[in-house]
Amino acid sequence: MYRSRALAVLVPSLLAAVLGSGAPAASAAGSGDGGPVPHCLNPEGDDLNALYHVKQRIIGPPACRETFEKAQWVRSAPDWVTAADGASAVYPEGYEPLRIDPIDDFDHKFVSATYVHDIGTPQEKSFTYKRKQVLRTGSVGPDGLPFTALISPPFKALSVGEHTTTVFITLDAEHCDGLGTVREENCLPAGSSVFSDTSFEVVSRPRHDGDHDPDKS
């Protein structure tokens, strides 16, 4: 599975500006121009489009950083992986989970995810979704560890060129994954923090033999 640990907490003033900028709804599902969509494979070779029933191009893993112009796209974030259960979990000193199993603790504390495109530019746009709109729960990896995936609703097409997409998550209490005792590595803070940040490119859709060009009619 495509996994990671969260990035550092964002500077509070910038975070407030991002989360307070409004959140227009993403567009409804659809493939843009109706053409075929390349599927996204994570580093382990899993087909994320098939796994999560996504019709649009997924942006997230290293091999999935390109999408077509005029086509909707979906943002995935690295899976959050925890200890298998409460019995095997280990935590930093003083931490007390609210749910016995660490994966249930994460899902319970998760409030929302905010997706910011082209952060810090005039083209910046922000979208916020609640738990049920983004969390994909109930999965277990080959190593026997449970994980929760974050898969956004579809976003409208962006202009051709380079873009960035940053994911912030908001938790209503601190969460630790049960896999270690180092807070900086194994825990997520209460409030909002950066979870994933990546760049990607929107490219022109390749033409195929036999395509009709109305400008040359």
Rank of each mutant, 00 (worst) to 15 (best):
T198I: 13
P154G: 01
P214S: 06
T114I: 12
G210H: 06
A89K: 04
P78K: 06
D105E: 05
A25T: 13
T121Q: 09
E96K: 12
C176K: 03
F127A: 04
P146D: 01
A28Y: 09
P62A: 10
Y95C: 10
T137I: 11
A190Q: 13
I59F: 01
A17L: 15
P43Y: 12
A84T: 06
K156L: 04
E93I: 13
V134G: 02
R136P: 03
K216L: 15
A25E: 14
W80F: 15
G86W: 02
Q72K: 13
A26T: 12
D101L: 11
K70N: 13
H117V: 13
I59W: 00
L51S: 08
Q123G: 10
I100C: 08
S76R: 04
V111Q: 06
T121L: 14
T137K: 12
H163K: 07
D107G: 08
S4L: 08
P102T: 00
F110W: 09
V37E: 01
V140G: 06
T164H: 03
V81S: 00
S21C: 10
Y91K: 02
P102C: 02
K125P: 04
V140S: 05
L51M: 12
A77R: 01
V9S: 11
G144N: 11
K132N: 15
A63M: 14
C187G: 00
T165G: 14
F110C: 10
T121D: 07
D213K: 11
P12F: 09
N186H: 13
T170K: 13
L188Q: 05
R205M: 10
L19T: 14
P122E: 10
H117F: 15
F168C: 08
